[in-house]
């Protein structure tokens, strides 16, 4: 039934999931906006994070330790993509596709060759679950705030500035003695670390990990980034600080997910959602280019 109360009842859950997608988008922001590379590894590393976390939690390990381990595994995955790109000289986009493709097998191995492993919150110790949405929102916000603060600090350090310079102007970075290959590997590593961490949160939240849970993650992440940028330009037409831009990535994730909820509430076939998302992201990426007349 299409009723308003039905829609309103779904909003808190949408916000909670939106925050988790927003955290994932923070990882994509590092590769897409800071390094200016398209890293398709994330479709795999999101599921890797979820798989690793669920396997640890269901074997009795603390969910906090599980999330940290997922982050570290994501870093490892990002290093692989980064090294394939920089050492084997394979274009970044293809390196990501290769790693993402291979991760499917790795993720199945992590989950004991089962495509879907449940992590029932009443039987397992989890700290973020859809059974308690207000708490899930709170935990999500705390995670987002801490991660944004760390990112803000890090990209102001010497190393963070070197990564930004690499994304901005590689020749200039080299002339300043920056090892651009190392900076790219670090960028891919941190990006995928955050994506895997978000995967670990999502698996807890939904109560299972699935080998396909990362499918389309890159598109959702880009949608969150772009929606956030559009909103920030409306609210701060004169531009805003890096810190604020990161907050808007999270807001973009929330808004993206709320849009999806409205669309689903309108009884649009969920199978058409991916096409709709792809078109929206394509148009949002195209509009700034077309405006410039390039």
């Amino acid at each position: 039934m299409i009723t308003l109360s039905n829609l309103i009842s779904r909003i808190p859950g949408g916000i909670a999931q939106g925050i988790i997608w927003g955290i994932m988008a923070l990882g994509i922001y590092i590769t897409f906006r800071v390094l200016k590379e398209s890293d398709l590894t994330v479709d795999g590393s999101f599921a890797t994070g979820g798989a690793a976390a669920v396997m640890m939690i269901t074997s009795g390990i603390s969910p906090w330790i599980a999330v940290i381990c997922s982050f570290l595994i994501g870093i490892l995955v990002g290093c692989v993509t980064g090294l394939i790109h920089t050492k084997m000289k394979i274009p970044a986009i293809l390196s990501g596709i290769l790693v993402q493709f291979g991760l499917y097998s790795v993720n199945l191995h992590i989950m004991g060759m089962v495509a879907n492993v449940s992590c029932n919150p009443s039987k397992n110790n989890v700290f973020i679950t859809m059974r308690s949405i207000p708490k899930a929102i709170l935990v999500g916000i705390i995670f987002a705030a801490v991660l944004i603060a760390i990112m803000y600090w890090y990209f102001g350090t010497e190393q963070g500035c070197a990564i930004r310079a690499t994304g901005n102007n590689e020749r200039m970075a080299k002339a300043q003695g920056i090892n651009v290959n190392n900076m790219k590997v670090i960028g891919f590593a941190l990006g995928n670390g955050l994506v895997a961490l978000a995967g670990a949160l999502m698996a807890q939240y939904q109560g299972f990990s699935d080998v396909n849970m990362g499918r389309g993650a890159i598109v959702i992440g880009l949608a969150a980034i772009i929606i956030g940028e559009v909103l920030s330009e409306i609210i701060f037409p004169k531009g805003c600080q890096f810190f604020t831009r990161l907050i808007f990535v999270i807001i973009g994730g929330i808004v993206y997910y709320l849009i999806m909820i409205v669309v689903l509430w309108l009884r649009v076939d969920s199978n058409d959602l991916k096409l709709a998302t792809a078109v929206i992201v394509m148009l949002s990426l195209a509009i700034p280019n077309l405006k410039k007349g390039e």
């Binding site: 890090y154 102001g156 350090t157 010497e158 190393q159 963070g160 500035c161 070197a162 003695g177």
Partner: peptide
């Protein structure tokens, strides 16, 4: 110089 985790400026 090496790029450390000190503040960039």
């Amino acid at each position: 110089l090496k790029r450390s985790l000190r503040q960039g400026i």
